[in-house]
Design a protein around this nucleic acid. Structure first.
Lengths: 205, 205
DNA sequence: CCCGATCTTGGACGGTTGTCAAGATTTTCC
DNA sequence: GGAAAATCTTGACAACCGTCCAAGATCGGG
C-alpha cells in the first residue's frame, strides 16, 4: 500500500486509484460472466494482465473488491439511466420513452443487470453487501419516482401509489424481461416496452 | 441404490423415496438458512442424523439434490397459495384477499421465499436449474392469472395486460416486501397488502 | 546512476469443497 | 439362522478457495 504518512506527489495516489479501478472493472466483467457464487479471485486475476496476489495489494479482501465493483456499477448504472425523462413533452411521449429507455438499458448490458440481481439476492444472506445494495436500490427508486413525477407534471394529476411501490412494479417487469431475454425470447424486449408504457398511466388511477 | 432390475416389495422403493424426501427437507432447511452459495453437502448432512456420505447414496450429485429440493418446494409453495381466490364474492373482497394472502404467504415462510429468489438468480448462471425454475415461475404465473380472471368474472370486465406482465408486477411487489420484511421493516407487510390490493383493479384500465 | 519506495510475482499455507470407494452395519427374505 | 441385499459410516482423494509472505522487478527522485 502506498505510504499514507506523507503523500508527496498527487500522481502516486492517482496511479493507485487508477489501477484499483482497472482491476475492479476486470472483476466486474468476470463477475457478470460467472456470477457471484462461482467467481474466485484467481479467475478474476486471469482476466487481467496481473497475478492473483496483486488483488490483495489493492483490496483488503474479496468482499472489499466486490463492494468496490458494486459501487462503480452503481455510478455507471444511474448515469446510464440519466436523460431518460429529459426529452419528452407529452404524457404519451414520456410513457413511450420510459419503455424504450428500459428496453435499451436492458439490451445494453444484460450481463451486468444479471449480476445486479444476483448480488441483491446475495445481500439477503450476506450482511456485508446489504448497505451498498440498499443504497443502489434507493437510487433506482428515486430514478423511477422522478419519471413518475414528470408524468404527473405533464398530466396535471397526482400519482396514487408510493415511490417504493412504483419501483417494485417497474423492477418486476424489468427483471422478468431480463430473464426472458437471456433465455432467448425475442418478444421480451417488446413486451418490456409495452408493459412499461402501460404501467405508467396505471399509477394514476 | 436399490435393485432396479426386480422391485419385489413396494415398501422398498417407498422407503427409498421417504428417505430421499427426508434428506431433501433437511437440505431445504439448511439452504433456506444459508443460501445456495455457502451451503455445502457436509453442512446439510450435519443438520440430519446421518453422515455426509449418505447424500451421494440418495442423490447423484449436489445439483441433483438441490433440484429435488426445489421441486418439493414448488409443490408446497403452490399448495400454500391454494384457496386464496376461493372465498370472495365481491371484487373488493377479492382484492383484499389477494393482499392478505400474499402477506400471509410471506410471513409464513420468509426464509424459503428468500431461497427461491436466490435460486432463481442462480438459474440465470447455472443452466442446470433453469428448467425447474421456469416451471415454478410458470405455476406462480398461472396462480396470479387465476386471481386476475376471478376478478374479471366478478366485475364483468376484461384485463388489459398479459398474464406474464401481471405476474411480474405482483412478483416485484412481493420481492420488495420480502426484502424489507427481512431487513426488519414493520411496514413492509402492510405495504404489500395495500399495494397488492391496489394493483389488481389497475390491471383493468 | 543509485538507493529506497513502490509495485508485482509466484508459491505456500490451512481450510473447505464435491466426490468416491471400501468396509461396517442393518435389514430382508428363504 | 444365515446368506444376500440394502443401507450407512468413515476416511481419503484431488481440486479449489482466500489469504499471506518473502523475494524479485520496476520506478522515481537525489
Amino acid at each position: 500500500m502506498p505510504s499514507s504518512a506523507a503523500v508527496r506527489s498527487r500522481s502516486r495516489v492517482d496511479k493507485f486509484e487508477d489501477r484499483r479501478r482497472e482491476l475492479a472493472d476486470a472483476a466486474l466483467l468476470t463477475l457478470a460472466e460467472l456470477g457471484y457464487a462461482r467467481t474466485s479471485l484467481r479467475t478474476i486475476a486471469d482476466n487481467t494482465a496481473f497475478s492473483h496476489g496483486l488483488l490483495h495489494y489493492y483490496f483488503a479482501d474479496k468482499i472489499d473488491l466486490i463492494t468496490y465493483c458494486v459501487r462503480r456499477y452503481k455510478d455507471a448504472c444511474v448515469q446510464r439511466y440519466e436523460g431518460l425523462v429529459a426529452a419528452a413533452s407529452t404524457p404519451d411521449e414520456l410513457a413511450a420513452a420510459c419503455g424504450d429507455g428500459l428496453a435499451a438499458t436492458l439490451v445494453d448490458a444484460p450481463l451486468v443487470h444479471r449480476l445486479w440481481y444476483d448480488l441483491r439476492s446475495q445481500s439477503l444472506f450476506e450482511g456485508a453487501f446489504r448497505d451498498d445494495v440498499a443504497e443502489i436500490d434507493g437510487r433506482l427508486q428515486d430514478m423511477v419516482w422522478r419519471l413518475v413525477r414528470a408524468y404527473a407534471d405533464l398530466t396535471g394529476t397526482e400519482p396514487t401509489c408510493s415511490p417504493s411501490a412504483a419501483y417494485a412494479m417497474f423492477d418486476g417487469l424489468f427483471q422478468q424481461a431480463l430473464q426472458r431475454h437471456l433465455a432467448g425470447s425475442d418478444t421480451a424486449l417488446d413486451d418490456l416496452r409495452r408493459n412499461s408504457r402501460d404501467l405508467l398511466p396505471r399509477l394514476f388511477v
